[in-house]
Amino acid sequence: MRVEARLFDITTGFFFLAAVVYGVWSREPAGTVGLILTGGLSLIIGSYFHFVARRVARRPEDNPEAEISDGAGEVGFFSAGSYWPVTIAASGGLAALSLAFMQIWLLVVALICILGAVAGLVFEYHTRPNATD
């Protein structure tokens, strides 16, 4: 996690430096505030990565002398044939359209569809515990 934390440290510094330069050079407040807020959001994410990096074991990505084979092994289980991500995206699109046209009833339907699709994705491979007779 140290690599990610360092990446966000660099982007945070860039955004704050860009805010100072932009604010002095253009004297336009909206862009300056936008750059300051972007730097603040980057600072939040970087702080989270620093917090997590202290609590997790060191990964091969954090070791500059690591070999590619050090990162070998199982990464996780990713379903290649799941339709739930498409369903979530379609439900999100429906929610965006309902907001664009200010159709509150359609937004309620879209939010129900999003919750159902997320539940379907989460519980796709969930199996019941074996019932003992």
Rank of each mutant, 00 (worst) to 15 (best):
M1N: 13
R2F: 02
R2K: 05
A5G: 09
A5K: 02
L7N: 12
L7I: 11
F8N: 12
F8P: 01
T11W: 03
T11S: 15
F14G: 05
F15R: 01
A18F: 00
A18K: 01
A18G: 06
A19H: 08
V20R: 05
V20L: 09
V20F: 07
V21Y: 12
Y22H: 04
Y22Q: 01
Y22I: 01
G23V: 12
V24T: 09
R27S: 13
R27F: 10
E28R: 00
E28V: 10
T32C: 01
T32A: 07
G34E: 05
L35S: 00
I36Y: 07
G39L: 03
G40K: 00
L41C: 08
L41K: 00
S42I: 06
S42W: 03
S42Q: 07
G46S: 10
G46F: 00
S47C: 10
S47W: 02
Y48H: 10
F49W: 08
F49H: 11
F49K: 01
F51S: 02
V52Q: 05
A53R: 01
A53F: 04
R54F: 06
R54S: 05
R54G: 01
R54P: 04
V56N: 08
V56Q: 03
A57Y: 03
A57I: 09
R58T: 12
R59Y: 09
D62Y: 00
N63S: 08
N63L: 12
N63V: 11
P64Q: 02
A66V: 00
E67I: 05
E67P: 08
E67W: 05
I68A: 11
D70G: 03
D70M: 08
G71S: 13
G71C: 14
A72P: 02
A72G: 06
A72Q: 13
E74W: 05
E74T: 03
V75S: 13
V75A: 15
V75Q: 10
V75W: 09
G76Q: 01
G76V: 07
F77I: 13
F78T: 09
S79H: 07
S79C: 10
A80G: 15
G81D: 05
W84E: 02
V86E: 14
V86K: 08
V86R: 12
A89P: 03
A89I: 00
A90I: 01
S91I: 04
G93R: 02
G93A: 10
L94K: 00
A95L: 06
A96L: 14
L97I: 11
I104P: 06
W105G: 12
W105E: 15
L107S: 04
L107R: 03
V108G: 12
V109M: 06
L111M: 13
I114W: 02
L115S: 04
G116W: 02
A117Y: 06
V118S: 07
A119E: 11
G120P: 04
F123D: 11
Y125Q: 13
H126A: 15
A131E: 15
A131Q: 14
